[in-house]
Amino acid sequence: MSDEFSRIARYFAPLAGEEGLGLANDAAVLKPPPGRELVLTVDQMLEGVHFLSGDDPALIARKLLRRNLSDLAAMGAVPMGYLLTTALPAGLPEAWLAGFAAGLAEDQKLYGISLYGGDSSSARRDISLSATLLGHVAPGTALSRGGAQPGDEIWVTGTIGDASLGLKARFGELTDPTGYLTQRSLLPEPRVGLALAGIVSAAIDVSDGLLQDLGHICRVSGVGAVIAAEAVPVSPQAAAFGADMLEARLTDGDDYELVVTVPPKHAGALKSACGALPITRIGHIVAGVGVEVHNEAGKTLRFGKAGWQHF
């Protein structure tokens, strides 16, 4: 494996924007767009926790960026660029680095972002990665988790549970004949570019499970939520596994869809803002605490967990 500086020059300097100064200095120099506020988010991916040892390095790189892009989407921010940190074990093949850099380059082009800088280090065994993404919003328009009010409707983009079942397929716990669920696990689709300011009262991306992440909105807003299990959108591929996978779909996470709360009078504006992106009403905000899931008969369903726990 090449040394640290030649690795940076070969694989990462070509990804740098002008703010990164060719990755030849101690820090980047960033000039925010005039009259805009900066939005920053950081996320990490660890081998054996967030990705498997044999995963395609290009897909690992793209998912690393997309997890952060999803956070920016949940704040209504326009992506700008990112800082990258890597801790890589000795002996990691050059082909892995080349694939990882190619994945970064692909999504940089797709989302109009560039590399500003970062840090590289060594790891004793497993790969450790993190990215800090920067975006911008008009002053005072950043979306938050804290504005939901009783009577607001709860909507979610896309479909929920595909990534969870895709991971099970990768572990051989179920079959995925089309590969669709596996792909959703490996490469999420962050919902960037939606003009939701002034329409939604609260927003969050679904990373740790729909119930848990919606619960974060409830906690910060000081409200409760009721959702209908049958209303939660499901892909045909996930629906094939029936009700047995309902808890996994609602609690395992890794969807990177958006769940938003919306005053009923803004429902039409929400649909217009989402355009061709499917968005589904799944419930409503109530006075109270926590999230309840009801079946078609109105009975409250109980689950063993609300979502992914890191500890």
Results as ranks from 00 to 15, higher is better:
residue 3 D to F: 01
residue 10 R to T: 01
residue 11 Y to C: 01
residue 22 G to T: 12
residue 22 G to W: 07
residue 23 L to V: 10
residue 26 D to L: 14
residue 26 D to A: 14
residue 27 A to F: 11
residue 28 A to N: 06
residue 30 L to N: 05
residue 31 K to H: 02
residue 38 L to F: 04
residue 39 V to R: 02
residue 42 V to R: 14
residue 46 L to F: 13
residue 52 L to P: 15
residue 53 S to K: 15
residue 56 D to R: 03
residue 56 D to V: 11
residue 60 I to G: 02
residue 61 A to C: 12
residue 61 A to Y: 07
residue 65 L to M: 07
residue 65 L to W: 02
residue 66 R to V: 07
residue 68 N to T: 10
residue 71 D to C: 10
residue 75 M to D: 11
residue 76 G to L: 02
residue 79 P to W: 01
residue 81 G to C: 01
residue 84 L to K: 04
residue 87 A to I: 05
residue 88 L to M: 04
residue 91 G to P: 01
residue 91 G to W: 02
residue 92 L to I: 00
residue 93 P to W: 00
residue 94 E to Q: 05
residue 95 A to I: 01
residue 95 A to K: 09
residue 97 L to G: 02
residue 97 L to Y: 03
residue 98 A to I: 03
residue 100 F to V: 07
residue 105 A to L: 09
residue 114 S to R: 09
residue 116 Y to M: 02
residue 117 G to H: 04
residue 120 S to Q: 01
residue 120 S to R: 14
residue 121 S to R: 05
residue 123 A to D: 07
residue 123 A to Q: 05
residue 125 R to S: 09
residue 128 S to I: 03
residue 128 S to W: 05
residue 131 A to C: 09
residue 133 L to C: 14
residue 133 L to F: 03
residue 133 L to K: 08
residue 134 L to V: 15
residue 137 V to M: 09
residue 140 G to T: 11
residue 140 G to E: 08
residue 140 G to D: 13
residue 142 A to P: 00
residue 143 L to D: 10
residue 147 G to T: 08
residue 149 Q to Y: 00
residue 158 G to M: 02
residue 159 T to D: 00
residue 161 G to A: 02
residue 161 G to I: 12
residue 165 L to F: 13
residue 168 K to M: 15
residue 170 R to Q: 15
residue 171 F to R: 15
residue 172 G to T: 03
residue 173 E to I: 13
residue 179 G to R: 00
residue 190 P to C: 10
residue 193 G to D: 08
residue 194 L to M: 09
residue 194 L to W: 06
residue 195 A to D: 14
residue 195 A to H: 07
residue 197 A to D: 12
residue 198 G to D: 08
residue 204 I to E: 09
residue 206 V to P: 02
residue 208 D to E: 05
residue 208 D to F: 10
residue 209 G to Q: 00
residue 211 L to H: 01
residue 211 L to T: 10
residue 213 D to P: 04
residue 214 L to H: 02
residue 214 L to T: 05
residue 223 V to F: 11
residue 224 G to R: 07
residue 224 G to F: 06
residue 225 A to S: 03
residue 227 I to L: 15
residue 228 A to V: 09
residue 230 E to N: 11
residue 232 V to P: 08
residue 232 V to Y: 10
residue 235 S to R: 13
residue 237 Q to W: 12
residue 239 A to M: 07
residue 242 G to D: 04
residue 247 E to N: 03
residue 249 R to D: 01
residue 249 R to P: 05
residue 252 D to S: 12
residue 255 D to I: 01
residue 258 L to D: 13
residue 262 V to T: 12
residue 263 P to L: 01
residue 263 P to Y: 06
residue 265 K to E: 13
residue 267 A to F: 08
residue 269 A to Y: 10
residue 270 L to M: 05
residue 271 K to S: 12
residue 274 C to Y: 09
residue 276 A to G: 09
residue 276 A to H: 13
residue 278 P to T: 12
residue 279 I to Y: 05
residue 281 R to S: 11
residue 282 I to K: 06
residue 282 I to T: 11
residue 289 V to K: 15
residue 290 G to T: 12
residue 293 V to Y: 11
residue 298 G to M: 03
residue 299 K to H: 14
residue 303 F to P: 03
residue 308 W to C: 09
residue 309 Q to D: 15
residue 311 F to W: 15
